[in-house]
Design a protein around this nucleic acid. Sequence first.
DNA 1: ACCTGAACACCGTTCAAGT
DNA 2: ACCTGAACACCGTTCAAGT
Lengths: 236, 236
Amino acid sequence: MSVATQTEAVPEPRIPLSKERVLRAAVGIADEEGIEALTMRHLADELGAEAMSLYYHVANKEAILDGVVEAVIEEIEEAVGGYEVPTDLDDWKAALRERILLARNVMLRHPWAPGIIETRRTQSLAAVRYFEGLAGVLREGGFSYDLIHHAMHALGSRALGFSQELFEPDDPESSDEDATAMMEAMADQFPYIIAMLGEIAHDDPDSTLGWCDDQIEFEFGLDLILNGLEGHLEAS
Amino acid sequence: MSVATQTEAVPEPRIPLSKERVLRAAVGIADEEGIEALTMRHLADELGAEAMSLYYHVANKEAILDGVVEAVIEEIEEAVGGYEVPTDLDDWKAALRERILLARNVMLRHPWAPGIIETRRTQSLAAVRYFEGLAGVLREGGFSYDLIHHAMHALGSRALGFSQELFEPDDPESSDEDATAMMEAMADQFPYIIAMLGEIAHDDPDSTLGWCDDQIEFEFGLDLILNGLEGHLEAS
DNA sequence: ACCTGAACACCGTTCAAGT
DNA sequence: ACCTGAACACCGTTCAAGT
């Protein structure tokens, strides 16, 4: 019957599925609805297909998670503009710092990515390429391979632009009054922590209690490591 | 009928469930069978009860995961022997280092714990107590609260004794020959990484290719941060 | 070659009901 | 007070069957 009506929307000519489309849609769902919304059924829905159809293009859900990590790290590669070691490298520290902060920008666009990167048992090719690039910068900066190896471990996830925040970033539910009340209640149990939080709040009255500028803290920790590595380099 | 036989085992007088028993059993399952084996049904089975009975003692599975993290951190508290700041503290760096390495020992007994600690949205009381202890050591060591705050962020998960290893620790499946073959295949694509791995293998022929001594690397990274903090302390 | 319906073996969880 | 059976709404996945 719908054929009769002139104004009827022509049904979208079905775009065939593909691994790329599946992965792109997966990243989209994670970005917009959170990683827990990424189920096979929901993903298929988003693509106008059935869950079972996905298995024709990917082995299983783990493969999707692998692919999604790969996609994010390729986004870093794009942001960095490729991993070629600059021929005129005169400051390995600045070069490394810049790459890592660019990686961080990508991670901030995909806040769910760190959590799933850490669950991968084996690193994607894209990640190996990224680390190869970092190793190149260090090597051309004068590092021994032994020190490069230590550097990779010391940086850990910071190399990819994130560090696991052990306390929750910030809770939009809780008010300043709540926080103040809680602080007073805990003051005798946790004097050092309370004093610390109090000082932070004093230094920066705009920040909610217990909330920290993650960017500044990330850079502080990163610089601590980079400077430490520089010390080792000079001593060698 | 079983009542008649003398040798019949008396049926275990049912020990009532409790939050503590549930959590202890949960830690046991995660230790022995891995965290993915920790399901409500399996946990109840282990306790000789039905899954639904657990809900009388804990709110839900999230609460069990919270409790299990709490238990692990209390194990750290025990290993450290309480978090009292030594009255004769003459070396904050050694004191902090020791606490963190003791925490690491506990984490090595519960290799699944880091992964689930990172999924907690809010820290347990036991964790706050632990960090209070670290803050105390730093404060009595002469740190400003501002620097203590930076230190906490810079340490990140290292404060609790673990760092996320981005490459898999080691794969018992793959042989040295496999690894050598793979290395040669990748040598032109990833010259720096291959050279790095080659040098490690050369320095320590006992280690499998690509495998690293996590303890040494953990301590290297930790010392980098502690020494960096010392620099900030002396400069202040 | 590509997609799907029906079905399976699992999850966590609710609720009314049992002792 | 403490535990459970039946049931629900979800998972990921297999497989034979459709076009």
